[in-house]
Each structure stands twice: as structure tokens, then as C-alpha cells.
Amino acid sequence: MGMDASTDQIKAGRIDTSSTYYELYQKSVELGTWDAEKLVHKVGFEDDREVWEGLNDNEKEQWARLISYFIDGEQAVAADARRIMKTVSSPYFDRSMEKEMMASALALEEAKHTQFFDLYITNVMSDKFPQYELDSRRGGIQIPRTEACGAGEMFERQGTLQAQAAHGGDPADIARAATNYHIGVEGILARGGYFAKNRMMQEAPLKLLNKGFQFISTDEGRHITFGLELLQELIEKEREGLPDYQGVENAIWEQAIEDIGYITDTAYFITADIDDPLDVDFSELVNRGARLAGDMMFDTLDLDAGSATEFMQASADAMESAQGSDYDDVIDKYDHIYSQKMAGD
């Protein structure tokens, strides 16, 4: 039986194989090229359908709120991956080749995540998703549940920020976009979602969904490391005093503070707003999200803690407004718009 040779023993020419970006790319090739169709065939939908059918409507609603923002979020990040590929070739980065390689892997993976959720919703959860087929980039809108919560707004903001960064953005623009995408969407919103799914799986063990989440979360882990590496490069240059890079740390904080509002709203939307039937626990979700944010911003990026209080206050403001929101009403409104779009009006 043949054994794999270790890749780091193979000599390369123009590619810097000692680069972290190369390592992330290579690991994406090794770990991130799983086949969503094969996964679905291998594990099958049957067990999940049985568990799903055994859930009451409120429990299904909780899953639907979580999965809505995942499918729309994955599609949004997949769509923005093209912009990331452009952004990492910016002259503000010293080298781009390995970054571009990693960004291309990221693009494939995000597309695959969208595919997985599309397959899953269609074959297991369709009763809670009478409407989800529209492509939001082709005149459609996001799923009503996504539109109703902070996640929907966050994905729209992501498109704007990524476009600004890709089209000649300066280092602060790039930092803002990377913060929103890799720290906010992938690092807190998605990972908070995995925390929620872990809790919900205790009561409702959807086996295929769990496997899919495991692969997705592993891919996203590399994307987050990628984003943090990009941010570290920019921060280093700012700290070296290079004039073009001034304002990077500030941009990261500003964006993080904006994003934590969307994220808190989403956390409330998937838990407390519907009385948390599958016991995620809003408090523990918030605590976990805070730790994930802290690990990235203080441990990895070593940001000055000066704005931590503002960060919490932004979360507090969002929670207060979430408590006063009538999400069902908003969902109904978007249901109506969605139906009209589906009918081709």
C-alpha cells in the first residue's frame, strides 16, 4: 500500500511553500475537497427526516431560523469570494500568489457549503421552507427569516464592504472588509451557529446535518485563520508607522462594533425570541460569542482593549432593540414580498 509523501519535502519554484497562506491552501486541498453529493449519499436523508418529523413546530422553527441564515450566508460569502480574490492581489500586500491560491480554495468551499444546505433543506426541511429557491443576486431577496434578523443586514453590508475593498480599497477598507467577513460572519456569527447546533443536536440529533456542519466548520476554520493572517499583515505595517496603513486597527474595531449588533440580534432571534425550545441558551451563546471574539481580537490580533466597552454596549443596544422587535411580523412582510418575486412580479 502506498504511503503519502510529506508535501513539505517537495521542492517548489515560484510558490513560497513556507508561507502560512500556502499551508492553508494545501490543507484546503487535503481537507476541504469533500464532495457534498457523496456525503449526502453516504449518510442518507432518512434518519434526519425521521427526527425532523418528530419535532414540534416550534422546534422546527428554531432550526429553520438557524439554517436560513446559514444558506443565505454561505451564498453571500461564496458570491463575495470573487472580491476577496481580487482584494488579496492588492498592492498593499507584499506577496499575493499564495493568498490568491487560498482565496480560490475558499471560493470553492463556500460554494459547496451553499450546495450542502440547499440539498439539505430541499430533502429534509422543505415544510419549513416553502420559499427559498430565489437567487438573491438575481433579483430575489434573502429568505424571509434571514431578512428579518441582523444576519440579513450583515450579509448585505458584507457585499458593500467587499466591493469597496476590491475596487482599489486602501488598507483600512481591506481591514474593514476582512473584519466583517472573517471575524464577524465566519468567526462569530457562524461559529456561534455551530455552538447553537451542538446544543440543538442534543434534543434533535440530525445526523447528516451534523456531519455537514462538521465539514463546513472545519473549512471555515481555515478561512478564519486566513482572514486573521491578512489582518495581522496590515496591523504590522500600521505599527511600523507606514503612512498608508494608518487607521487599520481603528477600522477593525469600528467594524467589529458595527457587526456585533447584527450578531446579537441574530442570537436573540434564534433563541430567546421563540422561547428557545431546543435549549441553546441565549446567555451561554452570548458568552461563547464574546470568548470567540476575544480570542481573535485580543489574543491573535493583540488589539488595544480600549474599545471593548463600546463593543459590549453595541451588543447591549442591539439586544434591547431585539427585545422590542416583532420578528414574526417582519417575516410575514418578507414572505409576501418573496411570494410576489416568486410569481415573477
Binding site: 492553508l24 481537507l31 445526523k207 472545519t218 485563520t225 491573535t300
Partner: peptide, 26 residues
């Protein structure tokens, strides 16, 4: 090496919430 990378994405810290958060009820 692959298992370690699944868990830490190269960071040295288990931060793969979907796997390291475990709770794999199945």
C-alpha cells in the same frame, strides 16, 4: 497532522466549534 489541523486550523488552539464543541449526539 490532518486531525490536528481539523481542530485548530493551524492556530495551536482547538477552535473548531463544529467539531471541538463536540456534543456529537450521533
Amino acid at each position: 497532522e490532518e486531525v490536528a489541523y481539523i481542530l485548530d486550523s493551524g492556530t495551536g488552539r482547538a477552535n473548531n466549534e463544529g467539531v471541538a464543541g463536540a456534543a456529537a449526539a450521533d
